[in-house]
Design a protein around this nucleic acid. Sequence first.
DNA 1: TAGGCCATCTGGTCCT
DNA 2: AGGACCAGATGGCCTA
Length: 217
Amino acid sequence: MNVSDENLLKSISNDALLDLTQRYGQSAFGFGAGHGAGAPGRFPLTPATDFLSGQTANDDEDGFDSLESRKRGSSFGDDKPGGPLAKKSKEQRSLRLSINARERRRMHDLNDALDGLRSVIPYAHSPSVRKLSKIATLLLAKNYILMQAQALEEMRRLVAYLNQGQTITSPIPTALAPFGQAAVYPFSGSALATCAEKCTTYSGTPASLFKHCNDKP
DNA sequence: TAGGCCATCTGGTCCT
DNA sequence: AGGACCAGATGGCCTA
């Protein structure tokens, strides 16, 4: 794909995404944009720690000695002369480190949830595909849900149609299948579809977001 | 080397 | 007051 093709795909896909967003805005799913804990519309998730047995590997309380920080050779933590925490009192410093640890834990929980999401998204876990980025995961999941809902609606209509005692002599009427049969099995007859193509079709997301999909048709 | 993606720190805001 | 959430900043790693 050359650059102009990619740009074209991006613009088309962004428009499609905008359209989807406008039609199926957050409210349609009950996910409010509330700010802060307990805001209206917030999904009532049980804190991840309720599901996890014990603490995570990085679940240390200090703010500068996490496994991740060490592995990444991070200079964060700033528990050193000249660092932002150096001037603060011992209490302030301790509080800050505790807040940092909580925030780190929160982000790890968020990432665990994203991993869970990746694990149930089609085409997201082929050995030849690198892990989906966060944004790609969310966009793919959103559109996969929309597609499943559409397929379900299509099936309902089909059942109603059959219940009327009529036989189907032709493929599902297009009026009943906005995406045609491809909505249910988008790639059933396409051995040529690459992972990136599948992901793009599923999500209406620029192929550039799935550039890690490198499997061959 | 630029750009994408990510982890972490940080300060602010809101809620309980 | 303490915790959860958020967004901005920063710096590391990886890839084209």
